[in-house]
């Protein structure tokens, strides 16, 4: 599994997968994609990096405990639901606003924050599980 070809390709592959996962996350509102599938892609990128470079290397690169990432994701998801309190709307109501950047109109919404939260939860939990399993394998 841990051949030189794989080890050379892995960093490039991981970088592309992470960027792609963010792309999938952002196009998710009206087209196929979204936080869940984006998070899965990012987590598989991390799992690949773990196989190629070893778990301790990944933990060093991540800097934050994967489960803490998941906790942060859960927090901002819940918080995005609470934001509609200010708008006199029920829990989890989507709030929309627009920015003009140059000539482009950019949508920004509480739905997006929720989706980013889902992305982080999936990324955190799945990579925590993957890293724990890989650690087990290395130990044996």
């Amino acid at each position: 599994m841990n051949t030189i070809i794989f080890r050379t390709i892995a960093p490039i592959l991981v970088a592309i997968m992470v960027v792609f996962s963010v792309f999938v996350l952002l196009r998710g509102h009206n087209e196929p994609g979204g936080g869940f599938i984006g998070g899965l892609i990012a987590a598989s990128a991390i799992a690949i990096y773990g196989i190629a470079a070893g778990v301790s290397e990944v933990r060093k690169a991540l800097k934050i405990d994967p489960l803490a990432i998941a906790g942060f994701g859960l927090f901002i998801s819940g918080f995005s639901g609470l934001m509609s309190l200010g708008a006199e709307a029920p829990f989890l109501t989507g709030l929309w606003t627009y920015f003009e950047i140059g000539n482009a109109k950019v949508d920004f919404s509480s739905v997006l924050i929720f989706d980013v939260g889902v992305y982080l939860v999936v990324l955190g939990t799945i990579s925590a599980i993957a890293l724990a399993l890989e650690e087990n394998e290395e130990g044996e």
Partner: peptide
């Protein structure tokens, strides 16, 4: 429900 979820999320972040 929301408070319990958010509380759990914060505790998960402060796990260590």
């Amino acid at each position: 429900v929301v408070l319990a979820l958010l509380g759990a999320a914060i505790l998960l972040m402060l796990r260590s």
